[in-house]
Design a protein around this nucleic acid. Structure first.
Lengths: 299, 299
DNA sequence: TAAGGTTACGGCGATCGTAACGATC
DNA sequence: GATCGTTACGATCGCCGTAACCTTA
């Protein structure tokens, strides 16, 4: 057993068990990969992959169980490398942030600016995805830190820190009835609604609010992206329900924002990362920036 | 970085940072070890060991942090090997049990007999040690399963299963006053006491019982070993306080046993093993035997 | 000066690459 | 028949062992 064989197993799971793709990723020829896999299976004494003829199509139960350990080893190996690099120079490096559109556009700009000032040598990769995908990116090592509102609870491998609490806001064009009227659940439900997709940015709390009432929402447009919602609200398609921090007083001056904090439960945006993943110092400082920025906010 | 370098680091911590001892353990020459360490430190880019001249005397903070990850890797590597062996043949193998003398002599015989019948191919190593050492043996991989009463709480890396509950018993020679009289804390305290050493077999509960009362125990002999205590009780040195299950009705018929369950809080014997350590099937069955045996007992 | 660690060098074995072959959709 | 995997073989590179050298108690 050696580390390249461990790495091979890890890559095979990523490449849908393709030896040729794995070879490419490892920068060696395919025949070498084939032999290494054979050697490893020989050492284990049992096949780790189900095969159709010569093609690998799945992992055996033993293979899956061993894959768990392989991932542990891989994580630890990466930690060693990160630790070493961090110790040599904690001012340079790479930070993969995975988050939803709303956070990326309306919450992250300030903390990222401050962070850039302190760490001009750190390259930031920002990855937008659905909350479900965010967690997956953490687990597969494609992201170091995830920032989102939904789905990050009850995962034993995740460390989750509360970041900030916010409320939803309804937005309508200036001439819309809701621009002036009292806002109630029933009144809201009488209009076509535009809001976030399932599983995004506090959508679950919107569901909860209307579950309890007798009204039913007529959601005519769901989007992951606040700006898409705003666009169609401007076109008069209906009432937008968006996150409070996504309302920009100057850019959205053509719209009227009505606070919904009395109707829809507050949402909590969290910061999540893998417990077993060593975050370089600048990563830890980035989280501090997030929390600092959160404290300065109010919705 | 490769697995032998990882292994080297692990062994260096075991050998007090001696390259020559490490070389011996790894069955290679010392110069090879020296070079591998240099290569690894070069790859890390920083020294992992503090040196006095050429001699290694301690680890640097970075080295210690990396050692954590090394141990994780080592554990996972062992798990892979155990998984593979277990899958090939779950009827043969080795089981390292670490426990105290009392458990080894008075609780384990029955479950071990039953286990041997089911798994004649499993070699059992029984290791006697203090509770503190038991935990250490688990952490260093020298034991798979520990059975004891003290010290196994609040360790995040340990899985702890309750095994059985028992009470202390006082033993005296037949002609001793306590053979007949009512047993109270005060009465007990009026005699010289022989019992377990600090940190052994429910000793902490004895302390607790007497802390609350005004009496103070005059412990004239402490031993880890119940049989030593019995021996000196037979010689008339005083009153023995031992675990209830350590009283053998036939072998100890020359002694009088007085139950202390109304005076000393009950003790709980637990089974502990490392959460991250894969126990082969027979190991899991061994634990089942322990729990089965425990249910058949009563003290 | 003995014991532990480093440096230099030669030899062996592990693993890679090339290439030809085999199988599967 | 194109893609993917296996087998065979030669070449290379990494790692070990021998041995001489360095350093400190």
């Amino acid at each position: 057993m050696n580390l390249s064989q461990i790495e091979l197993l890890r890559i095979l799971q990523e490449t849908n068990f393709s030896l040729s793709l794995a070879a490419e990723k490892m920068h060696i020829v395919q025949s070498a990969v084939s032999r290494q896999l054979q050697l490893f299976e020989a050492e284990i004494g049992s096949p780790l992959f189900e095969r159709h003829g010569k093609k690998l199509i799945a992992m055996t139960p033993l293979g899956l169980r061993i894959l768990d350990e392989v991932n542990v080893i891989n994580q630890a190996k990466n930690n060693i490398q990160t630790l070493a690099a961090d110790y040599l120079d904690s001012s340079h490096g790479v930070l993969h942030i995975a988050t939803t559109h709303t956070q990326a556009k309306y919450f992250l700009p300030k903390p990222i600016l401050r962070f850039r000032e302190k760490y001009p040598g750190v390259r930031i990769y920002m990855d937008e995805a659905s909350p479900e995908q965010l967690i997956n990116k953490l687990h597969t090592g494609k992201a170091d830190i995830a920032i989102c509102t939904e789905k990050v609870a009850d995962d034993a491998y995740l460390a989750v820190k509360p970041c900030y609490e916010w409320h939803h806001t309804a937005i309508v064009p200036k001439n819309h009835p809701l621009a002036e009227d009292d806002v109630t659940l029933e009144r809201l439900a009488s209009f076509p609604i535009l809001t976030y997709s399932f599983g995004f940015t506090g959508r679950s709390n919107i569901e909860k609010a209307f579950e309890k009432s007798n009204s039913e929402l007529d959601i005519i447009l769901s989007a992951a992206d606040t700006d898409v919602i705003k666009t169609y609200v401007r076109l008069g398609l209906g009432v937008g329900i968006i996150a409070g921090m996504a309302v920009d007083k100057t850019l959205d001056s053509d719209l009227v924002a009505r606070d919904l904090s009395h109707l829809i439960p507050s949402s909590k945006t969290k910061i999540a990362y893998l417990k077993n993943n060593y975050l370089p110092l600048y990563g830890q400082h980035f989280i501090e920036e997030l929390i600092f920025a959160a404290q300065k906010m109010q919705f």
